[in-house]
Structure formats: C-alpha cells, structure tokens
C-alpha cells in the first residue's frame, strides 16, 4: 500500500509525536504541532496514537491511494474531498485503490492532520518518523512532500471502521483572540515593570513568519529594557544574552519588538533573551493560528500550568475513551 502525491500542498510533512532525546545537540523534538489532533486522527482510523500521519499547512495536497484503507482528517478545518465528493473532518472514511483525496480551501485553524490506517511507514530515524526539514532529517527524505513522491503505508493490524466521529466537545481549537498562557521567567527581569504590563495587556497578531520553528507576533508595544552593562560574550544589544538553551514554548523578543514562540522544530539555543514560556497545555493551540490572527499572552503560575496540563491529559483520555 502506498500514497502517490499528485500535488503536495503548501508544506505537507510526515509527522508523528516527535523525536525526544537529541535537543542537547540541536536536534529538536519535531512531530505534530497540534499533537492532540494527530492523536485523534490516528485513533479514528485504528492506529496507535504515535503513528506517523501527514501535517498539512493552510493548503491541502492531492493524494492517490493504491489500496483500500481507512482515512481521517482532523485539526484545522481544511475540508477533504474523495474523488471530488465532500467528506467530513474528524470522521473516518473508507478509501479504495485509485481513490483521490483532495481538499477545499482552509476554513478555520491552520494545520490539518491526515491519518491512514497502518500509518505512513517512512524509516524511523533516531526513534521517530517525524520530519525535521532544517536538518534534512526523518520523514520522507528529510523534506516536505513534492509532486511525484510515493509514501509507503504500513499494514494495519486493526483498521478502524469508517463513519466514526469524534464529538465536537473533544476537538480543541484556539479562540479569538487566542489565549496563550505563559509562565513569566527566564529573563523577564530584563524588561521594565511597565514593559511587562504592556506585554501582557497588548493584543498581538500572528506575523507572516510563522512556521514549525517558531511563531512570530507583532503589533504590541516595543519592550523597554532595564539598563545594564552588557555581560562579556553577550553582544551589545539590550536583548542579547550569552547564547543559551531555548525551552520549547519560550518567548524571545529580539530587539524588544516582535515576540517569537519556539515550537516543535525549535532552534535549541541562541543569544536572545526570553520573557517566559508558553505552558505545555497551550502549545497545540499555536499550531492552529493563522497569520494576522489576534493573540494574547496571559501570565499564570506553576500551579495553574500544572492544572492546565492535567486538563489537557483528561481531554486526551476522553478522546481515547470515545474512540476505544
């Protein structure tokens, strides 16, 4: 069984839940930016949660199947069509040899996830099938899909039935403005108290430079810095630090102007100060933000971050129960 890529869409990549363990040498986690959406798609078609699927950004691909399978499309609302006939998102459907999956225009969110029973069976590299394009690692030849590619699909141990749907209440999407909860810290002390207030009060907008490495935001006021003598090795700009590690979700603000939240293909370190870190429970939401969408950073403490994490785990458990 294989998938023939007729047209690749804007930037379609093979992703599973990621490649932990190599961040210390600059190889990031990778994996689905909206991990819960990929999990749901996999469970809908009877796969393990961690099976590799396709992450579609803004614009869908056109794909042909060479054998029968069960397919599901979740995440952002990019309506699927099979041989030109509409299919529901978040609902499994059957495909047979020669069927062509295509997509309508994006209606909501930013990233859709395509799961196929058996999973995309590209080689496992350092424990994962996820694509890390910057390092030309994993996925299909270390890159986004191109027309003419043929993707191997694994044999399904148990194929999910067609027509299964995930209840709407179990599909998590960002609101408008998107609320991104963050734990202030890291180098928060570098900005003035007033700047900290503005950062949290301002409504930011997703900038066009938003990808798997990081999401850039603009439109808020420039942050003012606390005066200092530059530490040796840091560089002269007040936003510079001696190059250090960047947490996933960390919010750096080069020059104090445009915050960048690092995501699944994060650069692992660098020389810009960070005001804090988006909590783990809200990372999936970032993957569903389109350019120009409004967003607000909301400061929380560790207790609230851990509570949100528990809520997210509870959602995942409910999804599992609903699709068991």
């Amino acid at each position: 069984m294989a998938i023939k890529v007729h047209s690749p869409g804007l930037s379609t990549t093979v992703q599973d839940l990621g490649r932990p363990g190599y961040y210390h040498i600059g190889i990031p986690l990778s994996g689905a930016m909206d991990s819960e959406a990929l999990r749901s798609a996999n469970l809908l078609v009877g796969n393990d949660e961690n099976a590799a699927g396709l992450e579609v950004v803004f614009m869908g691909p056109e794909l042909e199947f060479t054998a029968s399978a069960t397919v599901a499309v979740t995440g952002g609302e990019i309506p699927p069509k099979l041989n030109g006939e509409p299919r529901e998102t978040w609902t499994s459907f059957a495909v047979k040899a020669g069927d062509v999956l295509s997509f309508d225009f994006l209606k909501a969110g930013a990233r859709a996830y395509i799961a196929v029973s058996g999973g995309i069976d590209v080689p496992v590299v350092l424990g994962s099938r996820s694509t890390y394009t910057l390092g030309a690692l994993g996925g299909h030849q270390g890159r986004k899909l191109a027309a003419g590619d043929e993707l191997p699909v694994g044999s399904a141990s148990k194929s999910g039935a067609a027509g299964r749907t995930l209840p709407v209440s179990l599909r998590r999407m960002p609101g408008s403005p998107a609320t991104l909860r963050m734990l202030p810290g890291l180098y928060w002390h570098r900005i003035t108290e007033d700047a900290g207030k503005h950062f949290l009060a301002d409504t930011w907008k997703v900038a066009p430079e938003a990808d798997r490495i990081g999401y850039r935001f603009r439109g808020g006021q420039k942050l003012a810095f606390v005066d200092r003598k530059p530490p040796f090795g840091a560089g002269s700009d007040p936003s510079n630090i001696v190059d250090a590690c960047y947490p996933y979700g960390s919010i750096q603000v080069p020059g104090g102007t445009e915050p960048i939240v690092l995501h699944r293909d994060a650069v692992s370190g660098g020389g810009y100060f960070m005001v804090g870190t988006v909590i783990s429970a809200d990372m999936d939401l970032i993957g569903q933000l389109q350019p120009h969408m409004p967003a607000q950073f909301v400061a929380v403490d560790m207790a609230a971050a851990l509570k949100a994490r528990k809520d997210q785990d509870a959602l995942a458990a409910s999804v599992r129960a609903a699709l068991a």
């Binding site: 963050m182 810290g185 890291l186 001696v242 996933y248 979700g249 804090g276």
Partner: peptide
C-alpha cells in the same frame, strides 16, 4: 534558576561567558 514553563528548568551559571 528559572522554570521554562512546566517542562524545563533553565539554569544560568553566570551572566557573562567564561570557561
């Protein structure tokens, strides 16, 4: 020491670079 969200601890040994 500083928490980087709920999954990281970030530790600065010194503000300036030295061996």
């Amino acid at each position: 020491y500083s928490f980087g969200g709920d999954e990281h601890i970030f530790v600065e040994c010194d503000e300036e670079m030295s061996l």
